[in-house]
Nucleic acid binder design. Structure first.
Lengths: 245, 245, 245, 245
DNA sequence: CATGAATGAGTATTCATTCAT
DNA sequence: TATGAATGAATACTCATTCAT
């Protein structure tokens, strides 16, 4: 397992200045160990005893923190996707263009696959097995989607369908990239997102323009204030820059 | 497990007039039993002994046909996706419009989810665990995609990316529908495919037009001649009807 | 299985005053059960579940102490041969004549076969399957052999060959006796050892004289001090009594 | 498995001019296959299905020739030791000196270990598991032993003990050599046999003299007449050449 | 809280043997 | 005789979970 990309570290590491209780630290160690084991053996191949061994604890200890094997994975899935999403959202919180926000989100997820295949594969596995992880992210995507619609950038008939297209496409692409099946990932990502944006109703030109904007940097640390809750669609309906129609 | 939709039955049932060897019959029974068990317990929860029990055989017998647990699932995954694909392709073999061919393919896969959730879920599970099942279908999609491109119906920059969008979106949508998370699936499918077709480069109007065409019936029996191999893109580049540009 | 000859009991029973941990007690029980089962079914016919059953434990427990079936047998082989050897060596620790020491060792091993056929057969089986059990004893024999050579009692050209003759002969004889194939075992042992001693270079008269000396009693308990490590050959080269040349 | 030393081949190959029935040929193939499998996987690891596979037959066929798994090994053990013994005996049938006959026998068995470790190990395994193989050879050794006694070359008090020493020593030595644990096997064999002969009552000088005599060649083919039955001791009590007393 | 020994049901896989063809 | 599919009991080993310390 490579060192985890900084943005994912938070839930495993205490934030700055935090003084986590011992209980909390143990829990973190367990999740950390789970990451390690799942990454190398897969969810099905991960046993409690192995997690305990890697965490340097006795098997019984695990049950002081999670009452079931499943609970660990679930907690991990939620923690990972929450953290990742939190950072992504934070990185584009100053962007006012819904289309760009969504585009940044997608790019970040694909970037993760290029950056660190093991982490991406881990995420994919957990996400398919524990759908609640995805459900937690959805509201943010939905908010951005609505914003873009309200701004006249997207034109979709069915919100749910749109989100399914976005997530389905991104997850599959992530898997392909992480498995090394994509030779020129830059071009691939470019083409892929263009198609998705087009599907969401943008003109090819607009889509290209959005894609051309720089990707805002990924925060290394947790936000000083908690990640903003998703705003209701249309909350800030000012015309986004570069909107063509 | 509901009775399987006719088109999927073939690989489990002897074709008409066929006189399968005993060995062959046993193998079919085993695959059939595997469907049953996987559908109710999931791939990970499926044990050899359970398969044997459901098939009415001794556990040892399984190993006369498959040398490994994995081998059964793999065989099943391949058999299912091959058969299904074969029928879908057969059902639109007379269609000359690449865009319509692709659209039919996608609609059929989503139709399966509405028609029989258990079968769809089974398929999804197997497809994620055994990617070769998908690889076997890809060439057909790729052929249709190229045909549509050659006919000026699609405009995609990266073939692989396009296929990933199509498959990723369809698999996710299939899961959503099969899990009963989609209330009005007709509208959902309509919206979803419109977006995908738009993403592939069609105008909204063309996309709508393609979607409006009737879905050809699904063959109940194996094709009298083997399913045609995918044609090279452009082999039949006559302008498709309804093409707008 | 008859009660084991006292001297073999130690590794299965806690020493006096010892307060073995629970883990240790379980381990001992397992080895004890293994003795039982191997004696009645042979090494090949001994299953983990049977061992557990006889030990009154769950099958899984076995694996908390031995990570492999083989490991149990190996541990048992080593424990048995080590303990037995320890006691034999202890019983003749005061004897200064190398030839007599070897003779005592051989007689004791053959005595075991008469005394308790099942234990002898067990030992033989384990020794052939797990040669390390023999390797652990060899150094003691080698030391005695060298002592006898240095004392001018033995005359052998090849130490290894000599030890192989001694062990090979004793093991075969042990098997014959334990299987009840030897009617007059006293005479048999007398004749056998005479031949071996002659083979090691003693005159028939000296050999007979050594054989005539009484067999020192077999200690029932562990030595108060650990069994002495084998002394280097010649360390005590004083002429042994009764040496003829 | 190296090609088997010629002398062992007979029972696997038809003798010259023989026209074995088909049944016989099949049986031979099975034994041949068994050799192969046992040599590489050990007796315990040898399954009927593997034997059949190597022999190019169906598992069921095996049971037309042997009614039990054990029966195969037994038949093989007997066939191998019988054949080997037959050739050894044949090779020294013209020797009139009992001591030399025994010495040749022992040297041949040890020679086998040097010549072909796999065959030696095979033989050892089978011999320990199927004692009847040894019982078949014993009469020949006993006859030679008696001859040597009658000729005043050996002086043993207990015939059975003597034979046990001979067999025990040779089997152990064979194992040591075959396992590559003996660096200078020529010297080792020399020393070992000298000790054994001394143990049987020869003077060192006589023992050395017997060992110095050349080893008669090993017949490649079956004897034209059946191997002679062991002669009663003393049948030919003429003084053996080189006898010293 | 942590420990880690014990549990015991569960799993994939093997294999001697049978028997209908 | 040969075949080879079927059998089904047996087996080593795993693992989530419990509980006394």
């Amino acid at each position: 397992m490579p060192p985890l990309p900084q943005p994912l570290a938070r839930f495993l590491l205490p934030g700055e200045g935090e003084r986590p209780s011992k209980r909390d630290r143990t829990r973190r160690q367990l999740l950390h160990a789970t990451v390690e084991v799942v990454a190398s053996r897969g969810v099905a191949g991960t046993s409690i005893q192995e997690i305990a061994r890697v965490a340097g604890m006795a098997p019984g200890t695990v049950y002081n923190h999670f009452s079931t094997r499943e609970e660990i994975f679930e907690a991990l899935a939620v923690a990972l996707s929450t953290t990742l999403n939190e950072r992504v959202v934070q990185s584009y919180q100053h962007i006012e263009d819904g289309a760009q926000r969504m585009s940044i989100g997608m790019r970040r997820f694909l970037w993760l696959a290029e950056e660190s295949a093991p982490w991406a594969l881990l995420l994919i596995q957990l996400a398919s097995a524990y759908p609640e992880a995805i459900e937690l992210i959805k509201p943010y995507s939905r908010a951005d989607l609505r914003m873009a619609q309200a701004q006249g950038r997207f034109h979709v008939a069915d919100e749910e369908a749109a989100i399914d297209m976005v997530f389905g496409t991104c997850m599959r692409a992530q898997a392909r990239i992480a498995q090394g099946e994509v030779p020129d990932s830059a071009a691939y990502v470019q083409a892929l997102l263009q198609m998705v944006l087009r599907g969401l109703g943008m003109s090819p030109a607009d889509a290209a323009e959005v894609m051309a904007r720089p990707l805002p940097p990924f925060a290394t640390h947790a936000p000083t204030e908690a990640a903003p809750a998703p705003r209701r669609a249309g909350a800030r309906a000012g015309r986004a820059p570069g909107s063509s129609a």
